[in-house]
């Protein structure tokens, strides 16, 4: 049985597994999240940055992979909405005793949770969980596949700094092949009408780019002077099973954003990075602290964006017209 991601009764989102879940018209879906995020940015700026919107709801984070910002960001977001949070740490759980994923999910659900935030090293795990579970599933990164909330917070940060995303030229530089962030961002940026260029050595591009509405380049110096946003990706050495680049030093020299390259960017251009940064590999230490580098803004906006996603999934309209929901 394939459970639809949106609730058939009201067409609203039940789970957020990929950017394409945001509706038949992805651009409208993203805009809706952005508008709601504005309200949560205001909440975050208050002396008491907390609203009672999700009182009594429980959000579980189920992270099978390491994370600092995404996990803390979701937890902060849930707490600012007054939801209860539970943390599931795989290394100290019964998964270690050989419990299957399905049994783990059923155990968590039996405790009465409303949303599960999942990160897993394998693509498709959140979608599989969404088939089993009745609670809302949020993909916090699955393998090379997608990381939708990261794309939403990147869209929000660009919109906040540059006013709009439509027509903006965005370069995504680095390890595209292993990057779920790149996949979600390409989907989101192009849906909003941005002009996206991927810059990477051919070995770090996905095996096929069919159906991706993007340009590809291997010459970062030629691309940088023409862009509004330079989005650097981390070298995901933990996912590399073969030698895709000769050495880190060579990669760094050819594709790293150093001070000389940062000067090539137009004055208004933003430098972004999803974190965690490898200073000295894909981005120089000094570049990471430039005024146009908005990495800290990305993290700050991440909390508000995730509040918006949680509120959309759990707080706004499980029913139209007061009828009981299924």
């Amino acid at each position: 049985m394939n459970r639809p991601v949106t609730n058939p009764r009201h067409g609203r989102l039940r789970s957020l597994l990929s950017i394409s879940d945001l509706g038949p018209d992805v651009a409208t879906g993203i805009s809706e999240v952005m508008t709601l995020t504005d309200s949560f940015v205001e909440v975050s700026e208050r002396t008491i940055p907390k609203v009672p919107a999700l009182r009594g709801r429980t959000v579980v984070s189920l992270f099978f992979e390491d994370s600092t910002r995404t996990r803390l960001s979701f937890e902060t977001a849930a707490k600012r909405l007054s939801a209860d949070t539970m943390n599931f740490s795989v290394s100290t759980s019964s998964v270690k005793k050989g419990e299957s994923l399905r049994d783990t999910i059923e155990t968590i659900e039996a405790m009465g949770v409303d949303a599960i935030v999942v990160r897993h090293a394998s693509a498709g795990v959140p979608r599989q969980i969404a088939q089993w579970a009745t609670s809302a599933i949020i993909n916090a990164g699955d393998g090379w596949h997608e990381h939708p909330t990261q794309a939403l917070l990147d869209c929000y940060t660009i919109r906040q700094r540059l006013g709009d995303i439509t027509g903006k030229r965005i370069a995504i530089v680095g390890d595209i092949r292993h990057s779920r962030v790149a996949r979600s961002n390409v989907a989101a940026f192009t849906a909003l009408g941005a002009d996206v260029t991927l810059v990477a050595p051919p070995t770090l591009l996905p095996p096929s780019l069919e159906g991706w509405p993007v340009k590809v380049s291997t010459d970062i110096d030629a691309v940088l002077p023409t862009v509004d946003v330079c989005y650097m990706l981390r070298m995901q050495r933990e996912r590399m099973t073969e030698a895709l680049i000769p050495t880190i030093r060579e990669y760094s020299a050819r594709y790293g954003l150093n001070e000389r390259r940062a000067e090539l960017l137009p004055d208004h251009a933003l430098i972004m990075h999803p974190g965690p940064m490898n200073r000295g590999v894909e981005i120089d230490a000094a570049v990471a602290d430039l005024p146009n580098t908005v990495i800290v803004d990305q993290v700050r906006n991440g909390v508000a964006v995730r509040m918006a996603v949680l509120f959309l999934l759990l707080g706004s309209g499980t029913t139209w017209g007061g009828e009981a929901d299924v």
């Binding site: 309200s39 205001e42 609203v51 509120f311 706004s316 139209w320 007061g322």
Partner: peptide, 22 residues
């Protein structure tokens, strides 16, 4: 002020804030 996040019928009906509280 927009009370969307403070209503007692959250989850019963779809209420999104109309504008940012100021």
């Amino acid at each position: 002020v927009d009370v969307a996040f403070y209503r007692d019928d959250i989850g019963l009906r779809p209420v999104l804030p109309e504008t940012v509280t100021d």
